[in-house]
Write a protein that binds this DNA or RNA. Structure first.
Lengths: 135, 135
DNA sequence: TATTTACCCAGTTATCTGGTAGGTAATATA
DNA sequence: TATATTACCTACCAGATAACTGGGTAAATA
């Protein structure tokens, strides 16, 4: 499994926020209820997105989260990489320092690298707007 | 991570067997030593491949494993599906009965399905021969 | 000051990964 | 026939990860 609930929840929140009136802050509680996701779990996810500058967060009453770019400004890849850490389908291509000792003679390595690039290209070619419009 | 060591070890064994003199049975011990893989762990993997008819196994002295098809007769996908169980990158497309309750309105589902088909097509288009020759 | 919100940290339960241990069954050779 | 060699079977285990939960603190507003 490449993408866990963490990344999928993040995408759902971004899509949800993209559907809200422009500029308004949406409290997490509302998102969690609408999307039927554990609010506590979402908190951790949103903090990641907030720290990375993907969303704007405002404390206190009337606060919450909102997007700071148009939906087409977010690629699915950028959100998943943040929340999942990596999208590498095999550890062979994921780790830099802890590289496989057989990497110089591994007959499968080129395949993994190709797959890696393919998956990255796939996710980078899709934006939140595409998810909204079903393109 | 889509592919764990289990699937990667299976591929390595198949490549190793493909490099041996035609028709000879190779004991697991030899494979494990040459590939530096835990023999006990490999046993479990080879039993899966053997039961599925991917390799021929012969007990006793002079026995071992050998391929029963030419290397181009094995797709990487067929081996990985056996050993990994599934290559689905998200649980959304993996489970049949335990399907997601939001699948009918999920804006991301088409994306997951497309990715699923892409990955499947990728692995099915590569054979053990391709790994051998580096094609 | 009280309430509402985001944010931080620690623990929990279940599942999966990558093994290990200790056998049994089948086959060949001496 | 005895012995060694091989595949195969069952069970267990330690560590990591996923997916939460609980109990706070900090910031902002009414």
């Amino acid at each position: 499994m490449i993408v866990s609930t963490k990344g999928r929840y993040a995408l759902r929140v971004m899509v949800y926020l993209a559907q809200q009136p422009l500029g308004t802050y949406i409290p997490l509680k509302q998102v969690a209820e609408a999307e039927e996701i554990s609010q506590k779990y979402l908190e951790a996810i949103m903090t990641i997105l907030s720290k990375a500058g993907m969303v704007e967060a405002v404390h206190g009453k009337g606060g919450g989260y909102r997007l700071n770019r148009p939906p087409e400004g977010y690629t699915v890849g950028s959100i998943l990489k943040l929340t999942e850490g990596s999208l590498a389908p095999v550890s062979c291509t994921a780790e830099g320092p802890a590289a496989c000792s057989r990497s110089d003679c591994c007959p499968a390595l080129p395949m993994w690298e190709k797959l890696d690039r393919m998956i990255d290209g796939f996710f980078e070619s899709i934006t939140i707007r595409d998810l909204l419009t079903g393109t």
